[in-house]
Design a protein around this nucleic acid. Sequence first.
DNA 1: GGGAAGATGTTCT
DNA 2: GAACATCTTCCCT
Length: 210
Amino acid sequence: MIDLGAPLRRRWYARPVLSVARGLLGRLLVREAPEGVVAGRIIEVEAYRGADDPASHAYRGRTGRNDVMFGPPGFAYIYFTYGMHYCFNVVVESEGCAAAVLIRALEPVEGLELMVRRRGATVPVSRLTRGPACVAVAMGLGRADNGNDLTCGPLWISNRPVRRSGRPIAAGPRVGIRMAVDRPWRFVLAGHPLLSARSAGREAARAVIA
DNA sequence: GGGAAGATGTTCT
DNA sequence: GAACATCTTCCCT
């Protein structure tokens, strides 16, 4: 098994959400479970802010569902949507801000067999961890993991240096929302083969420097 | 490869 | 009762 490093500390998450979102690209998301360890490199994320972001779950204030978003940074916000899917977010900035980063796609690095077993043998590897709900299934995440502290396992993001294989970061509009569609707050490793063709940024006019 | 539509249930109005 | 930070299947080109 490769060296997974150690969990990022809380102050790493206590920064502006757009900075954290870009800083997550190329890092390892690690999940340790009784069935085994799985890890994947983060290749696509979206930033969501609080009171000033109409697309955010936190826009209309604190509720039972989004409670974790309003807490301190470095915790997992996992919500249920569309009647069948879970999505995994990282709470960032500071307590009360309700800012978070949605993890949309990974490149499997460790525990590929376990990911395949969780997703179902018929799913091609190219689509194993593409899309937030797919990420949640492959990592074995569900309602019970909402509110987990990412600074002390068993679900954490590694402090190992980012590995982007020379790919620039591209920005584009967020997916699946109706409000604030003009904010280019989705970030990807441009041209990564495991992204959908559209996400990979063929129109990568907006590439930004890491 | 691309678009349309269905699945399915929690959350908030 | 409507909306929903989605995915998959099915059919088309």
